[in-house]
């Protein structure tokens, strides 16, 4: 049952992500990215992280990507040259080699990774009883209060910084 949900979502995430980096029109890239975000949101649901899934759609797919699209259209960037015609061949080769190695290095340890004994108390039963959102909220306003407040300051600074930088 889970596999039935996981495989299509994972496939969709990988395909749209690949499209993000190969399509030449930035508008299409942005739309593909939105697809990736939706797929990830579905996977979050699968992982019993309902609150995160919702936030993923609202913040990423909604707010951030809209901002991207605005800027893409504002700047009117046009198309890039095809990848295979780009000049800097050596750098491209090193980059591809590094990426392949990175993939191997990330994936191979997963196979040999011995699963640790679950330690936390947030079992499925608890989730079902109390609700994911309530759990997140409780933690956020007790144990993680200080980082949470700091986050608000970061956002404030980002707002001011963006205004200062983008002002004509």
């Amino acid at each position: 049952m889970e596999w039935l949900m996981f495989v299509p979502l994972a496939a969709m995430a990988l395909i749209t992500a690949t499209l993000v980096i190969v399509l030449r029109n930035p508008v299409y890239c942005a739309l593909s990215l939105v697809g990736t975000f939706f797929a990830l949101s579905g996977i979050y649901l699968l992982l019993q992280a309902q609150f995160i899934a919702v936030i993923q759609v609202i913040v990423y797919a909604g707010a951030i990507m809209v901002l991207f699209l605005f800027v893409v259209m504002l700047l009117d960037l046009g198309h890039e040259r095809p990848l295979w015609l780009q000049r800097d061949r050596p750098r491209l080769l090193i980059g591809v080699g590094a990426v392949v190695l990175l993939l191997l290095e990330l994936v191979i340890p997963v196979g040999s990774w011995t699963a640790r004994v679950p330690q936390g108390s947030s079992t499925s039963e608890l989730m079902g009883g109390v609700g994911n959102t309530q759990l997140v909220g409780r933690l956020l306003f007790t144990e993680f209060l200080v980082p949470f407040e700091i986050t608000s300051v970061i956002l404030l600074i980002a707002i001011i910084g963006a205004m200062v930088l983008a002002r004509r």
């Binding site: 090193i94 980059g95 590094a98 990426v99 190695l101 990175l102 290095e105 990330l106």
Partner: peptide, 9 residues
């Protein structure tokens, strides 16, 4: 990236 590859390796 190359540095990260080496370190991660």
């Amino acid at each position: 990236v190359v540095g990260a590859v080496v370190l991660l390796g």
